[in-house]
Amino acid sequence: MRKIVGLLLIFGFGFYLVTIIGPVVFPSSTGEKASVGVEVLKNEVAEVGAANTVTSVVVLYRGFDTLGEVTVLFLAALGLTLLMKGEKHLQAKLFDESFILKTGSYLLFPFMILFGMYIIVHGHLTPGGGFPGGVIIATGYFIIVMTSDVVRLREGLVSFLEGLAGLTFIGLGLVGLFKPADSFLFNFLSKGTFNTLLSAGIIPFIYAAIGIKVGSELTGAVGNMFFSPYGRQKDA
């Protein structure tokens, strides 16, 4: 019964979507499209000077969304620590990892951190940036945690970094309010040389803060899930 009603509902909704969105055709050249994004594309190099237009949209044009997005991640990490943290941390080994696996993961770790940092600082030049870079750093930690049983999370450090990075983002934004521009997140630094590391004003700095924040939040989330008394059962 439930399935039939669900199916009817879905078919109705699907039919509605297909009849209305279905006929929309994608434009075949930029001239045919009138949108905010096309305007951004025309002026971005002169206004911001970041090679990666998506990054300049993410960090400056729609930077306030990104602040909200970082807040959502902060919330999720907060919720995870609140829900998953028990009285005691489980220290039991999941299974016997081999020596090769352990050593391999230790060897991999610094390179993953380095690669994550590379992705973060080149966010305004190539695809990538704070979010993917932060995820890569957290993955490095995740691999260590998966293969070895001696690593413990320094929660104080993680939440310190997390808070500090968030405050840096807002602080850099607030500086814009003091300038004659009187606008939050105003790009108060010079544009620099196009397509080099130190270009596009405050974008690399904000993206670095985002990278640190995402990295530490996800690391904290992974650690909390993994070491939580509810997170894993000891193998019988």
Binding site: Y61, F64, G176, F186
Partner: peptide
């Protein structure tokens, strides 16, 4: 925000 005019 960021000093760009409204629809942008």
């Amino acid at each position: 925000i960021a000093g760009y005019k409204a629809p942008i």
